[in-house]
Structures are given as structure tokens and as C-alpha cells.
Lab assay of single mutants.
Amino acid sequence: NQASVVANQLIPINTALTLAMMRSEVVTPVGIPAEDIPRLVSMQVNRAVPLGTTLMPDMVKGYA
């Protein structure tokens, strides 16, 4: 099963992502692949992401 990127904390809108904000977890539906975590660092979210939410490509500016 593919691990996805999950929010490790509440991430406010327009926040630049850091490693501490993300974790890898096997979830359904599948979100951004966990191997993309290094690429996500310093990218901004375009909405508030609650703790435990799977990051989807449309939630991260410049990812999709």
C-alpha cells in the first residue's frame, strides 16, 4: 500500500510546509505520495489543513 502525506498538526492557510508538519501514513483515499515530502518543504497550503488530514495535490500551491 502506498503511504500518503498526512498533516501532523493544524496547518493554517498560506503556511509554508516544514518536515515537522507532515508524516507518512497509509490512508484511503490516497493523497500526495510520502516520497514527495522533501519536495513539499517550503510549499504553501492554500487552505487550513486540520491535524490528521491527508494532503491532496490541490491543497498545496504549485504542487499539482
Rank of each mutant, 00 (worst) to 15 (best):
V6K: 05
P33D: 10
P33C: 03
G52C: 02
M56A: 15
L10C: 04
I37P: 00
S42Y: 05
S24G: 09
V60K: 01
L40E: 01
A7V: 09
D36C: 04
M43K: 06
S24H: 11
S42W: 10
V45W: 00
V26N: 10
P57E: 08
N46P: 03
M43E: 09
I37G: 07
N8R: 10
M22S: 01
A20C: 03
M43R: 14
D36S: 11
R47K: 13
I13D: 12
V41M: 15
T18H: 09
I13V: 11
P57V: 08
V60E: 00
G52S: 12
S4H: 02
G31V: 02
P12Q: 11
Q9Y: 07
M22P: 00
A7T: 12
I13W: 06
L19Q: 12
V30D: 06
V5G: 02
L17W: 00
N14Y: 12
A20D: 09
L19G: 07
D58T: 07
Q44T: 08
G62W: 08
A20I: 14
Q9G: 06
N46Q: 12
G31D: 00
L40S: 00
S4M: 03
V26R: 07
S24N: 08
V5R: 00
N46V: 09
M59F: 14
Y63L: 06
L10F: 10
N1I: 15
M56D: 08
M43Y: 14
T54R: 05
L10K: 05
L40I: 13
V45D: 02
L40Y: 03
V5Q: 00
T53I: 14
T53F: 10
A16E: 12
T53D: 09
L17A: 00
P29R: 06
G31P: 00
Q44C: 03
A7R: 00
T15I: 05
R23A: 11
P29T: 14
V41G: 03
I11W: 01
A48F: 08
A3L: 13
I11A: 01
N8V: 08
M56K: 08
T54K: 04
E25D: 15
D58I: 15
T18I: 06
V41S: 06
P29N: 14
R47C: 04
I37R: 09
P12K: 08
I37D: 01
M59E: 03
P50K: 13
N8W: 07
L19W: 14
I32N: 00
M43I: 04
I13Y: 15
N8C: 03
M56N: 10
A20G: 13
L55Q: 01
N8A: 11
R23G: 06
I13A: 08
N1S: 13
L55Y: 00
Q9N: 11
S42M: 09
R39S: 14
L40N: 01
V30M: 12
V6A: 04
P50A: 13
A34V: 10
L40M: 06
N8D: 13
E25T: 11
P12Y: 08
N14H: 15
G31L: 00
G62D: 12
Q2L: 11
V26Q: 08
Y63Q: 06
P33R: 15
Y63K: 02
V5T: 11
N8M: 11
I37S: 04
N14V: 03
P50G: 05
I13P: 10
I32T: 02
E35M: 06
K61A: 13
S4T: 07
M21L: 05
D36Q: 11
V49A: 06
D36F: 11
T15A: 09
I13L: 07
L55D: 01
L17E: 01
T54L: 09
G31T: 01
M59Y: 14
E35C: 03
M21Y: 04
P50C: 03
A7C: 03
A34I: 12
A16G: 13
M22R: 00
V30P: 15
R47M: 11
A16K: 11
G62I: 05
Q44I: 13
T54S: 04
P29L: 05
Q2R: 14
V27F: 03
S24I: 08
T53Q: 15
V45I: 09
M43P: 00
P29W: 04
I37A: 12
V26P: 12
V27E: 03
L51C: 04
N14I: 03
Q2W: 11
V5I: 06
M43L: 10
A7P: 02
A16W: 09
N14L: 14
T28F: 07
I11G: 01
A3R: 14
M59C: 03
S42R: 09
L40Q: 00
R47A: 13
M59H: 08
G52M: 07
V45L: 10
L51M: 13
I32M: 04
D36W: 07
S42K: 09
Q9A: 15
N8Y: 08
L19M: 11
M43D: 04
N8P: 02
V41P: 03
A48R: 11
S4W: 02
N8F: 04
P38W: 10
M21F: 11
G52T: 03
L17P: 02
I32R: 00
K61S: 14
S24Y: 09
K61F: 15
V60I: 08
V5L: 04
K61T: 11
V41H: 05
N1D: 07
A64Y: 09
E35D: 14
S4V: 03
L19P: 13
T18S: 11
S42N: 15
P12N: 11
M59T: 07
Q44V: 08
L55E: 01
R47Q: 07
S4N: 01
M43H: 11
T15E: 05
G31H: 01
N8E: 10
G31I: 01
M22Q: 01
E25M: 15
A16F: 07
L19T: 12
L17H: 01
R47N: 13
P29A: 05
L55M: 12
D36L: 11
E35V: 10
K61D: 08
Q44S: 12
I32V: 08
L10T: 11
T54Q: 04
D58G: 09
V5C: 03
T18Y: 07
M56Y: 09
N1P: 07
Q44H: 11
V60A: 02
T18P: 01
T53P: 01
T18A: 05
I11M: 06
T15L: 05
R39L: 15
L51R: 05
S24P: 06
P38M: 07
L55N: 00
A7M: 05
V49G: 01
L19A: 14
P33H: 15
A64E: 09
A16N: 08
M56F: 09
V5S: 03
E35A: 15
V49C: 03
N14R: 06
P33T: 14
A34F: 05
R39K: 05
N14A: 04
V45M: 06
N1V: 13
P57S: 09
V27N: 04
P33Q: 10
R47S: 10
P29H: 15
